[in-house]
Computed example of a mutant assay.
Amino acid sequence: MTFSIVGRSADGQTLGIAVASKFLAVGAAVPAAEAGIGALATQAFANLAYRVQGLALLRTGTAAADVIAGLTAADSGRAHRQLGVVGPSGDGATYTGGECFDWAGGVAGDGYAIQGNILAGPQVVAEMERAWLASGDLSLPRRLHAALAAGDAAGGDRRGRQSAALLTVRHGAGYGGMSDVEVDLRVDDDADPVTRMGGLIELWELYFGKPDPATLLPLDGELAGEVDAKLKALGYESLDAWAGVENLEERLVAGAIDPLVLEQLRAAQRPTGA
C-alpha cells in the first residue's frame, strides 16, 4: 500500500526518506531518521517499533543489512513487513516479507533503498531507481522527490493516491541552525499528493534554503536606494523587519541581498487599509 525511497546525499552528510501511499498521513507512520546515524522506512503492515529500534542499531555502527536482519529476526510478523534502511556509509538494504500483498519488492545500492507493496507492478520500483541514479546533481530533498515522482508516474500504489511525506536530516540544518531536521513536509490527504509535495519543496527552498554566495547582490548604490524606497512604501523601516514578517529571515545576509528576496520584495504589495 506504499512506495518509498530511503537515501543518502553524495557527500554522506544528509539522510532522508520520501514516501507516498493510499493511506492517510503516511508520514506519521513510515519515516525515521537521525543526522549522522541513518534513515529507514517501515511499511506494509508497518511495525512502528522498527523506527526506534532501527535507529538504535544504526547508532552502534551496525550495517543496514544487519539492521534489517536484527529487526526482522525478532518480529513474528516479519512475513507481512517491508523495510528499507540506509546508514551513513555503504550500501542501503531493503526487505520484503513473503506475505506482503502483490506487487511487492525492492532494490538497494550504494546509499539508497527503494521498496513498495500493492504496487501497479515492478516498473514502479525500477523507475524510482532509474530516477534516483540519474539525479545525482540534485539536492537530497529534490533527488528523493524525483524518485518518488517517477514511481508515481509509473503507477505507484495501485489502489490510488492519498498522502506523501519527505523527511531529511543533517547536522545543524534545521531552522536557525538549532536542529538537525532539514526538511519535514507532509501532504496528509490529497488527490495528487506527490505533485503537491513538489510545490511544498519549492516553498521550503524559498523560505528556508540558504542563499547562494555567488548570486548575492551588494546592497549599495541604486539597488540600496530602490530597496529602501520599496520598504518605506510598504511601511517598514528595515529589510530585517519586512523579511521577518514574510518569513524570509533565513535568506538575509549583511551588506547584500539574495536575488530571491529581492524578487519577493519587488512583488510585495502593501496590505489593503494599511
Rank of each mutant, 00 (worst) to 15 (best):
F3M: 04
I5G: 08
G7A: 11
A10H: 10
G16C: 07
G16S: 05
V19M: 00
S21R: 00
A29Q: 14
E34C: 02
G38Y: 06
A41R: 11
Q43C: 08
A44E: 11
N47V: 11
L48P: 08
Y50W: 10
R51H: 07
R51W: 07
V52C: 10
Q53S: 11
Q53N: 13
G54E: 04
G54W: 10
A56L: 08
G61W: 05
A63Q: 15
A65W: 02
D66F: 00
D66E: 15
L71T: 14
T72V: 15
A73H: 13
A73P: 10
A74H: 11
S76E: 15
G77D: 13
A79H: 11
H80A: 12
V85N: 08
G87M: 03
P88F: 06
P88I: 09
G92Q: 06
G98S: 14
E99V: 08
F101S: 15
F101C: 10
D102M: 07
D102Y: 12
V107R: 15
V107D: 12
G109R: 03
G109Y: 12
I114Q: 05
N117W: 03
N117K: 06
A120S: 13
V125S: 00
A126L: 09
A126W: 01
A126N: 10
R130G: 04
A134G: 00
S135V: 06
D137H: 15
L138D: 09
S139G: 06
S139K: 03
L144F: 00
H145R: 05
A146F: 02
A146S: 07
A146W: 05
A147W: 02
A147D: 00
R161N: 11
R161D: 05
A165Q: 01
L167F: 01
T168P: 02
R170A: 14
H171K: 15
G176N: 06
G177Q: 12
M178A: 14
S179F: 06
V181K: 08
V181R: 12
E182Q: 14
V183P: 05
D190F: 14
A191C: 02
A191R: 14
T195E: 05
R196S: 15
G199N: 13
G199D: 14
I201P: 02
Y207E: 11
F208T: 05
K210V: 14
K210G: 09
D212E: 09
A214T: 14
A214R: 13
T215N: 00
T215K: 03
L219T: 01
L219H: 00
V227Y: 02
D228R: 12
A229H: 11
A229C: 01
K232Q: 13
Y236S: 01
E237Y: 06
A241C: 03
W242F: 11
E250L: 11
L252W: 02
V253P: 00
A256F: 02
L262W: 11
L265D: 04
Q269Y: 01
R270P: 13
